[in-house]
Simulated assay, not measured.
Amino acid sequence: MSQSPRMRRLIDLPGIADLEYQALLKRAWAEPDARAKFPEIDACSRAAFGLTADEAEAIPRPDGWDGIDQQSQARQIEAFEAEGWDVTDDRRKPLRMLDHFSTQLWLAIRGVAGELPFQPDDEQPDAWGASLAGDAARFRKR
């Protein structure tokens, strides 16, 4: 399955790659009770989504909520991709830290609580503007 050019990657959010690296070195970072031991996880969550995992769990779900945040990682990966998010590593395996951030990301994607980090619309330079700049340079040379 190829990654869409507009797909956002969870690991690219500030701090997530560092936590993923910590979980690679020490499995305890990815354990469910790791937030109590490592406050960096909650700090990263608050910086990225505006709320921690505990705060996200306490938020009442709207009517019709499908419980996607309680599904298996495999099911969530498919659903995240459908929403334009890649939550896997470079080998297409779920991030070790995914369980610490998936609920916040679901709430933010669906507009229930929290926020999605800002991303510019297009990182590529505008072809029209580049063409215009080239035309202006050629005009000045005449």
Rank of each mutant, 00 (worst) to 15 (best):
G67Y: 11
A36F: 12
G50P: 08
D126T: 05
G129W: 12
D12K: 08
F49S: 06
E123D: 13
I68R: 15
E78D: 13
K37T: 07
P94T: 00
F80C: 07
L98E: 00
F101L: 14
Q104D: 02
A56G: 08
Q22R: 14
L10I: 07
R140G: 03
Q124V: 09
V87Q: 01
I68A: 15
P62I: 12
D18Q: 11
Q76D: 01
D89H: 01
L132G: 01
T88F: 03
P32Q: 05
R140C: 09
G134D: 14
A133S: 14
F118P: 12
R91E: 07
Q73L: 15
K26L: 07
P60L: 14
G64Q: 10
P60K: 14
V87L: 08
Q104G: 03
A43Y: 03
T88I: 05
A17Q: 09
I109Y: 05
L10G: 03
D135E: 13
F38W: 12
K26P: 00
D63R: 12
E78I: 10
A127K: 13
R140E: 13
L132C: 08
A127W: 09
F38K: 06
A74Q: 14
P39F: 09
A82K: 15
P14L: 08
I41V: 06
R92A: 12
F49W: 11
E123P: 10
A58E: 10
A30E: 01
F38N: 02
P125Y: 05
K26W: 02
G50L: 10
C44E: 00
L25V: 03
P125H: 06
A34K: 07
R27S: 14
Q76T: 01
Q76S: 05
S4H: 15
D121T: 11
E57K: 15
I59E: 08
L105D: 00
Q76F: 04
R138D: 12
D54E: 14
